[in-house]
Nucleic acid binder design. Structure first.
Lengths: 211, 211
DNA sequence: AACGTTATCCGCACTCAGTGCAGAAATGCA
DNA sequence: TGCATTTCTGCACTGAGTGCGGATAACGTT
């Protein structure tokens, strides 16, 4: 890793943090890209060589998460497509959180309130779906074709996010990361129960093993 | 219907047509709102009292379609939730087409190529989903709660649109409305077959009756 | 340590979507 | 016809995002 790369990663990080700070304090629409750039000590023009749009600030490292899910699918063991998919989704957590709970909570709130952010989030979700479906079809060539894989993936993701929306607004888990995490688990449970009716216990097993 | 309303509806229609024309000839990004307004003989400023954003030009009458689906659900007869939902979705056709095949084809192409349009389309889909799920829960209070309805709806919509994407890109049915219609039917079939395994014939029955 | 090479930074000028405002024009109603 | 209410529209403005060109800093080499 060269100096250049390290420096670049550092300012990128600084931009995300500055943005989170400003979004929380002033609101999303009330924060300009110029302000964010200034807070991270770079020129306004330079901002756009780090993030193509203002919305993208809220979705850094997003392809990392997809990569993890795809890897998980590739190295599946004995289990079938639906089960792998379930586990893979646990990792991605399209609307859920993993690192930097603060940014995740902020993101979730903005998705629910700012149309532009919601639109971008849905786009990324769809893209992730496409990639997962493609790799799923590759991993189970005898059980799934491309269309079947896409349908299965779409059904899972759609069910979970649909349920999650309602669970979130019912249990008004505003910003508390723990509450959100719980909501995600409830949503997954409720949404996917029909698929795993015979052995519901599968839904509750921790799913972290693998090398 | 007063003169005002008729006039307003007329210019609204003119705007949609002018936009379609220009989008097809010059491309979406290359067409400015000012051009569209000029082509419909209204001031640039006035445009925004008809459509809040440029993208919205591609989704006129969208709430009509949702209304139709919701009505369908409300007046369900003996059939169960999944079946009504299937029929309702046939009507909405989140990515499919109904009237003015030209606009529908254009919309579909732009959804696949222009990010802003895709984002808006996904937003409207999600919103439609929410409304449908809510009414579905109301219509079957003994079989579904809000979360279950949202999960079921999300699963159906997700499965169909996921499958549709792949079917469309496989059978490169670019602009031909008939081919698109066929693709939608295939996608619905493939995506929803697992739910109706015992009586697959249901999937093939025409579903247009009702008063 | 000095060199040219290459990637990054950043100011400037620009386009375009979208908003607020205030006045003009058209419509509805008595 | 006269008045109230919408609707239309020009003007000025903000803010996101782009193209360009020169400055700056990191890189690899001798």
């Amino acid at each position: 890793m060269t100096l250049r790369d390290r420096k670049r990663a550092k300012t990128r990080q600084a931009l995300v943090e500055a943005a989170a700070e400003l979004f929380e304090r002033q609101g999303y629409n009330e924060t300009t890209v110029a302000q964010i750039a200034a807070a991270a000590d770079i020129g306004t023009r330079t901002f756009f060589s780090y993030f193509a749009t203002k919305e993208d600030l809220l979705f850094p490292e997003s392809d990392d998460r997809v990569r993890v899910a795809v890897d998980w699918i590739k190295h599946h063991g004995e289990i079938g497509p639906a089960e792998v998919l379930l586990n893979a989704l646990r990792q991605v957590g399209d609307d859920s959180d993993d690192l930097a709970g603060r940014l995740a909570a902020l993101r979730l709130r903005l998705i629910q309130t700012i149309p532009a952010v919601q639109g971008r989030a849905l786009q990324m979700q769809l893209d992730a779906q496409r990639q997962i479906a493609r790799h799923l079809a590759e991993a189970y060539p005898d059980q799934l074709d491309e269309v079947g894989a896409a349908a299965l993936t779409g059904a899972f993701v759609g069910a979970v996010t649909g349920a999650l929306q309602v669970v979130l607004e019912q249990s008004g888990a505003g910003d508390d990361p723990a509450a959100v995490q719980r909501a995600v688990e409830i949503a997954v449970d409720r949404a996917l129960a029909p698929w795993f009716r015979e052995d519901t216990s599968l839904l509750r097993q921790p799913v972290r093993p693998q090398a």
